[in-house]
Amino acid sequence: MNAIAFNGVTKKYGDVVAVDGLSLDIPAGSTVALLGPNGAGKSTSINMLLGLLRPTSGEITVFGSSPDEAVARGDIGAMLQEGALIPELTVRESVDFIRRLYPNPLPLDDVLRMADLTDLAGRRADKLSGGQTQRVRFALAVAGGPKLLLLDEPTAAMDVESRRAFWGNMRSYAAQGRTIVFATHYLEEADENSDRVVVVAKGRVVADGTAAEIKAGVAGHAVSFRLGDQPAAGLDALAGVSAVEIQAGRVTVKTSDPDATVEALYRKTTLDIRDLQIHGADLEDAFLALTKES
């Protein structure tokens, strides 16, 4: 069963198209990263999933019903980009309040433990640091035990250590069979914490797959060697090659499949190949390539 289905969803603000004919299915139980630069339509998509925004056209279903119905059933928990707490309430009071609004909440102590808040439970929200506030907001998102957890750039205000702890907590929540969708523009986060990456740019899906597939799908690898004064003709016809550059007697061929390209270099040419190097693409290159094209 699909946790989420976007069917040709468009969202316009006046003339500005934030989401442009988005179609996307996310099966229950998966952890999906929405990766894209600022303004790609990630937050708009998440807000539409929550019923906070209405699509201009197209349809969104969450566990087979409208977002409003899914929210009313308590199926969704979310950590939005902005969200302050009530300053006069303690961590425990805020978490318990939100928890009790859901039909099948998690036990309070479990929620506090999951967000590393046990020691801060009695502290008032106006006495919390930025990172601690983020942890409370994570606790509010999971308190109701939602089947679908939406996180919109959850680590934006966190330092490196809090980030690591945060993703650890998120993964243990995912391990309970929950569906998680998080938006990020950090490639590393998408790579390390999801089993599927959906790259969005200008409101469209530009790539969709595992992090490895996305890296492989882009001609981001390169093979280079010393050519000397040998002729370069025919290199661009080799398997996988998308571009050839020559600089100071050294040739660099961009390829989507370095293994095939190297094999072809040795078998199909008679070139004397010296000082061969293979450069791997990282997700960063893939991401830049993908979001630039669109």
């Binding site: 929210v71 308590g74 902005e82 707490l85 009530i86 859901y102």
Partner: peptide, 17 residues
């Protein structure tokens, strides 16, 4: 303040009518 700080949104995404 609740409207501006995002607390209202926090409530709107819970089952609270």
């Amino acid at each position: 303040q609740e409207r501006q700080s995002g607390w209202l949104r926090q409530l709107q995404i819970t089952p609270l009518p």
